[in-house]
Computed example of a mutant assay.
Amino acid sequence: MDTISAQRRSQLMSRIRGKNTTPELVLRRLLHAAGYRYRLHGALPASLEESLRQDYPEIRLRGGKLPGSPDLVFTAKRKAVFVDGCFWHSHDCPVGRRRPSSNTGYWNPKLDENQARDARTRRDLAALGWQTLTIWECELESTEQVLENAVRFLGPPRQAPRR
């Protein structure tokens, strides 16, 4: 097995993005083409943010965003969609079940904490009255199935008002 230097590994890891990833962009294109409109990365309208802060002071809304900064937010429906990478969020698929065999003292706690944070985020969103859907990176291999699941979760898209 080839090993890479710590500097090279750091360089590779720094290129991994948290926003606007390829799986997220695929889902956004699918949903937009199907007629859905959404906000990005947990953003809330100011009026909704203020009412949530008043009604739920125990839940932190940092920077006017929902807990966990969901990738897609459907404010009128109070629904949020996360697009999660299988490895980073320990999905129950071959990629997600595989953990690094080196530096386990770093990786195992990191991946376990990701799972714990995800559970806390979903719990906080449920307490705020929001429903969530997680789309896994591996599921986007079948875009038709993903769109079907998303439509089932979101309901029909709103029709634009006629002018």
Rank of each mutant, 00 (worst) to 15 (best):
M1T: 12
T3Y: 10
S5R: 09
A6M: 08
A6K: 11
R8S: 11
R9C: 05
S10E: 04
S10Y: 04
Q11Y: 14
M13G: 10
M13D: 07
I16M: 13
N20I: 02
T21E: 05
E24T: 09
E24S: 07
L27K: 02
L31S: 02
Y36N: 02
Y38P: 00
R39M: 01
R39C: 00
R39A: 00
A43M: 03
A43R: 11
P45G: 03
E50F: 08
E50M: 11
S51T: 15
L52V: 06
L52N: 08
Q54E: 13
P57S: 08
E58C: 02
L61F: 11
G64P: 07
L66M: 02
L66D: 00
P70Y: 08
P70A: 08
A76L: 13
R78T: 02
K79W: 04
A80T: 06
G85Y: 04
C86Q: 05
F87D: 10
W88P: 01
H91M: 09
H91G: 11
D92F: 07
D92N: 15
D92H: 12
G96D: 04
G96W: 01
R98N: 14
S101W: 02
Y106L: 04
Y106T: 05
W107M: 08
K110Q: 06
L111W: 03
D112I: 08
R117S: 04
R117E: 07
D118W: 05
A119V: 15
A119R: 12
A119F: 05
T121W: 03
D124V: 01
L125P: 10
A127K: 14
L128C: 07
L128Y: 02
Q131Y: 04
T134M: 06
T134C: 12
C138P: 09
C138W: 08
L140T: 13
E141V: 13
E144S: 15
Q145C: 04
Q145I: 09
V146K: 10
N149Q: 14
A150P: 07
A150M: 07
L154K: 01
P156G: 08
P157Y: 03
Q159L: 13
Q159E: 15
Q159M: 10
A160D: 07
